[in-house]
């Protein structure tokens, strides 16, 4: 386990006052706020910043961390001495948030074993295709487990989960009896579904959005094109005179559910390059014979 220098993460001195720590944290929280940050690794940085703040903003945790961390360098291999925390009393013994590091869980993850089973909750990342055909996914969950002395470590538990056809972004899948085992009945496990970003597909509710590149003559003359969609291919009729940016709706071909979503195809007319004499001649012929004014046709007069 690597030692984490929380002071370095927040960019404050080891003797920084509580007020300075709060200021430094807010500055970073603003910088890495996932909704607005332009930094490429904003989410990962925000996690580190939150974790550092969780320790340094809490006088009890900070004192324990200071005592323990004396003489360690960031990244150095770290093993807490046995019973290092005997002299500290933590007033709140929360389970560590699952996305905090092992280092944090090892130091501050103590908590009493739960008497009753509880519902547990985790996020799963799925492929968009899974919503169309269903799938069985093996997912690894990090579960806090208390040992005999009440200290918590994160254990990895592997579960096979059947993903139902028609699952949607944000949906919860409830697995009865897979939550935390306690003295009584185990609780349920709630899985929140999210889709991995896909190069071609975008899901909005039940609708599937796909960009469809077309040649100018396919758009102008109309065509029947084969479109690859999750779970198979589909023949789609492009109406004559379609323009770039036009959205074609294919009813019922979105995410299968009751009722199913729609497939929305956004046409993108791609021009063949004029990089051969023949191609140039074709474009020049069109220019001569079509008397086409794009600005006038668009009606914006610009």
């Amino acid at each position: 386990m690597e030692f984490k220098d929380y002071y370095q993460t927040l960019g404050v001195a080891r003797d920084a006052a509580a007020d300075d720590i709060r200021k430094a944290f807010r500055k970073l929280a603003r910088k890495y706020h996932p909704d607005v940050s332009k930094e490429p690794d904003a989410e990962a940085r925000m996690k580190e910043v939150n974790e550092a703040n969780a320790v340094l903003s809490d006088p009890e945790k900070r004192a324990a961390y200071d005592q323990l961390g004396r003489g360690y360098q960031p990244g150095q291999d770290f093993r807490p001495p046995p019973d290092w925390d005997a002299g500290f009393e933590f007033s709140h013994r929360d389970a560590p948030p699952a996305d905090f590091s092992d280092f944090f869980a090892e130091l501050f993850g103590r908590m009493g074993a739960r008497a009753q089973g509880q519902d547990h909750y985790a996020k799963v990342l799925l492929d968009i295709e899974d919503a169309f055909v269903g799938a069985t996914r093996q997912i690894a969950l990090r579960v806090p487990k208390a040992d005999a002395r009440g200290r918590v470590t994160l254990e990895t538990r592997t579960l096979n989960v059947r993903i139902p056809v028609g699952v949607r972004e944000g949906q919860l899948i409830r697995l009865a009896g897979q939550g935390a085992a306690g003295a009584g009945q185990p609780g349920d496990l709630l899985l929140e579904v999210h889709f991995k970003p896909h190069a071609r597909y975008r899901v909005e509710g039940r609708d599937l959005h796909v960009d469809l590149p077309v040649a100018p003559w396919e758009a102008a003359l109309g065509a029947v094109l084969q479109v690859d969609v999750p779970g198979g291919a589909l023949n789609v009729r492009i109406p004559a005179g379609a323009q770039s940016g036009r959205v074609l709706r294919v009813r019922g071909k979105g995410i299968p559910a009751a009722p199913p979503g729609d497939l929305l195809l956004t046409l993108r007319v791609l021009l063949p390059p004029a990089d051969t004499p023949e191609a140039r001649e074709l474009y020049e012929t069109m220019a001569r014979k079509l008397a086409f004014d794009a600005r006038a046709a668009a009606g914006d007069g610009a």
Binding site: D119, Y121, G170, L172, L190, G205
Partner: peptide, 18 residues
């Protein structure tokens, strides 16, 4: 965007840690 997946208060509290 309508979405018919609705959570109970208990589920919301669990999922959002509030």
């Amino acid at each position: 965007m309508s979405d018919d997946v609705l959570l109970t208060l208990e589920e919301l509290v669990l999922v959002c840690s509030v």
